[in-house]
Simulated scan of single mutants.
Amino acid sequence: MFLKRFNISHEAPVTGGFGAEISASIVERCFLRLEAPVARVCGLDTPFPHVFEPFYMPTKNKILDAIKETVNF
């Protein structure tokens, strides 16, 4: 069975993170078979003080929201 929906999560920023490379590889090979865009749940594209790290990092709620959006696409 072929997976047709993908969510990628990592702690690095969205732009230039390794999730972008994984996403690009998936789209290059599977574009016509995807049922939804590849979703990335990552850190923010901004510098942040370490005291705000819990708000910066992907959380289970952010990941769950991304899964719901992907499934309901």
Score class of each variant (00 low, 15 high):
M1S: 05
F2C: 00
F2H: 02
F2S: 01
K4D: 05
F6N: 01
I8P: 03
S9R: 00
E11F: 00
A12D: 09
P13C: 04
G16E: 04
G17E: 02
G17I: 01
G17N: 03
G17V: 02
G17L: 03
G17Y: 00
G19C: 01
G19T: 00
G19H: 01
A20N: 06
A20T: 07
E21W: 02
E21F: 04
E21G: 12
I22T: 06
S23H: 02
S23M: 03
S23Q: 05
A24H: 10
S25D: 11
C30Q: 10
C30H: 10
R33G: 11
L34A: 09
E35L: 08
A36E: 06
P37S: 08
P37E: 10
A39F: 05
A39Q: 10
R40I: 06
R40K: 08
C42L: 06
C42F: 01
G43T: 06
G43S: 09
D45F: 10
T46H: 11
T46V: 13
T46G: 08
P47D: 09
F48I: 13
F48H: 12
P49F: 03
V51S: 15
F52I: 11
F52N: 12
F52D: 14
E53L: 14
E53H: 12
Y56R: 14
Y56D: 12
Y56E: 15
Y56K: 11
M57V: 13
P58K: 08
I67P: 08
K68H: 13
E69S: 14
E69G: 11
T70K: 03
N72E: 14
N72P: 05
